[in-house]
């Protein structure tokens, strides 16, 4: 089991997103997929933003995985992602918004699990 919180930080966690303009309406949630927009230069970002961009250079991750890898609370990384997505640094793919499960998705899950 990995826990990202084994050391004490000098800078409080909430500072990670403190300088970002975070939109009022946030759609980002735990399973939102995050990836880096093409040709992004991360030099102008604060350290947490740089870490996040570096983490995502290998490919997309869910917000929750980002939080675990960065060792920051989910609620902070959610804001960080929302802020960086609003500024165009990151792109996101939201999970399906539908109220109930979609039959097509259910079939994909079923056939995928059965094939394992």
């Amino acid at each position: 089991m990995t826990s990202g919180r084994q050391r004490r930080r000098v800078v409080p966690d909430f500072m990670a997103a403190a300088k970002l303009a975070v939109p009022e309406q946030i759609n980002v949630e735990r399973t939102t997929l995050v990836y880096v927009a093409p040709e992004v230069v991360s030099d102008a970002l604060d350290p947490p933003g740089v870490h996040l961009v570096n983490l995502l250079k290998e490919g997309p991750l869910s917000v929750y995985e980002c939080a675990a890898h960065l060792g920051l609370p989910y609620c902070v990384v959610r804001l960080l992602v929302a802020g960086l997505a609003a500024s165009g640094t990151l792109l996101t793919r939201d999970p399906p918004r539908a109220e109930g499960p979609d039959l097509e998705i259910l079939e994909l899950v079923l056939s995928g699990l059965r094939a394992l």
């Binding site: 735990r30 399973t31 490919g59 997309p60 890898h69 999970p95 998705i105």
Partner: peptide, 19 residues
């Protein structure tokens, strides 16, 4: 962090499903 980075990544055309 190195092990985390080397772990397989998914592509964005996968639909995220929460269980």
């Amino acid at each position: 962090m190195a092990s985390a980075l080397s772990e397989s990544r998914i592509s964005v055309d996968h639909i995220p499903v929460k269980l």
